[in-house]
């Protein structure tokens, strides 16, 4: 019984510790956002740029598809990189936009 209690307390400590670290990281991100607005502008710009590249590239041949699960989207975008010879940067931006 005592061993079980020790295991339970150990697991609880590890889990809460990990959770605290994760929350701290998220909190840090939030603080960084408040301190430096430019830092959040970058992902927003990236999203807008991804949307723009998505419409200008994918719309050249077919209707804009819906967003698929991220791992499927990763396969599709690799296929389209080969078939439609889209650039490396466009592939990354479109994949990011389509998986957000």
């Amino acid at each position: 019984m005592r061993i079980k209690a020790i295991i339970f307390v150990s697991l609880l400590t590890i889990s809460l510790g990990r959770l605290a670290v994760a929350q701290s990281a998220k909190s840090d991100d939030g603080n960084a956002a408040r301190v430096a607005p430019a830092a959040t502008a970058q992902p927003a710009d990236s999203r807008l740029e991804g949307e723009k590249r998505f419409h200008s590239n994918c719309g050249r041949c077919h209707m804009a598809p819906p967003k698929f699960p991220p791992r499927m989207m990763a396969t599709i975008i690799r296929h389209m990189r080969v078939r439609a010879t889209i650039t490396d940067e466009e592939m990354r931006l479109i994949l990011k936009y389509m998986t957000q």
């Binding site: 609880l12 959770l19 670290v21 791992r71 990763a74």
Partner: peptide, 17 residues
């Protein structure tokens, strides 16, 4: 505890299927 552990996990790396 396992649920809490998973909550603390980062997103898995994006692997194509």
């Amino acid at each position: 505890l396992f649920s809490v552990y998973l909550w603390g996990q980062d997103d898995a790396e994006l692997k194509p299927v």
